[in-house]
């Protein structure tokens, strides 16, 4: 379980996360919905251990982030400004990342690429925006991550790609992963999520259970 306790984050005297409290459970898909700058991505960063809270805690499976561990174990993330290496192809990119933890086999990498519909030996520098997004999603799932954090996962994807991501998210949920999706497209969230949290000015003020 991911527990968010009194989480606050202040940046340049602006409160971007304002006393957030919530428990996220495994085997469910959560959606964060809100306008740009509302704090959706910042919460994903906080859960991924990328930002240090000004106040409060993120507790993952009983371990306090930035105290017991710096980053949550086995987490996949798709977030802006994450670029894969342009000089390598998709497989080699995932292989390089996989070598850091050595929990994914070559077959796992091939399977993840197949699942996102990437079957090419092209180098990443020759990828379209949509192909890069598919590869980003593949890197977030190829190690069978327990927690998957997706920021605007359907960006740059065509209709088929969007449907593929919907299906993939459902499969990951059925596997038992906790998935948190942040987007400002509410229709996307209704399609994918079990629970939608509305975010505004760093506050999580409403909860809708979809499924």
């Amino acid at each position: 379980m991911v527990e968010i306790k009194n989480l606050c984050k202040k940046l340049s005297n602006r409160l971007v996360l304002d006393n957030v409290n919530y428990n996220f459970e495994y085997g469910k898909v959560y959606g964060l919905c809100g306008p740009n700058g509302s704090g959706k991505t910042m919460l994903l960063r906080a859960i991924a251990g990328l930002i240090v809270p000004t106040k409060g805690q993120v507790v993952i499976d009983g371990k306090v982030l930035h105290k017991d561990v710096s980053f949550p174990p086995n987490t996949g993330i798709v977030i802006e400004n994450m670029t894969l290496l342009p000089q390598f192809n998709a497989f080699d990119n995932l292989k390089l990342l996989g070598d850091l933890r050595k929990i994914a086999t070559d077959d796992d990498i091939r399977e993840a690429l197949k699942r996102v519909g990437l079957n090419t030996d092209l180098k990443v520098r020759k990828f379209s925006l949509g192909m890069k997004q598919r590869l980003n999603i593949a890197q977030a799932i190829f190690e069978k991550q327990n927690i998957i954090l997706l920021d605007e996962p359907t960006n740059a994807l065509d209709e088929d790609g969007v449907q593929l991501i919907y299906d993939l998210i459902k499969e990951e949920r059925n596997r038992g992963a906790l998935i948190i999706v942040a987007t400002h497209h509410e229709e996307d969230l209704r399609e994918m999520c079990d629970t939608i949290l509305n975010v505004s000015e760093g506050r999580f003020y409403e909860k809708q259970t979809v499924h």
Binding site: A48, G49, L50, V69, S70, F71, P73, T75, I77, I79, N81, M82, T83, L84, L85, L97, L100, R101, Q139
Partner: peptide, 15 residues
């Protein structure tokens, strides 16, 4: 920055 973020989250300890 960039690709480094994908590497850093695959580690457990910043120290």
């Amino acid at each position: 920055h960039g690709y480094g973020k994908l590497q850093i989250i695959r580690h457990y300890s910043k120290t």
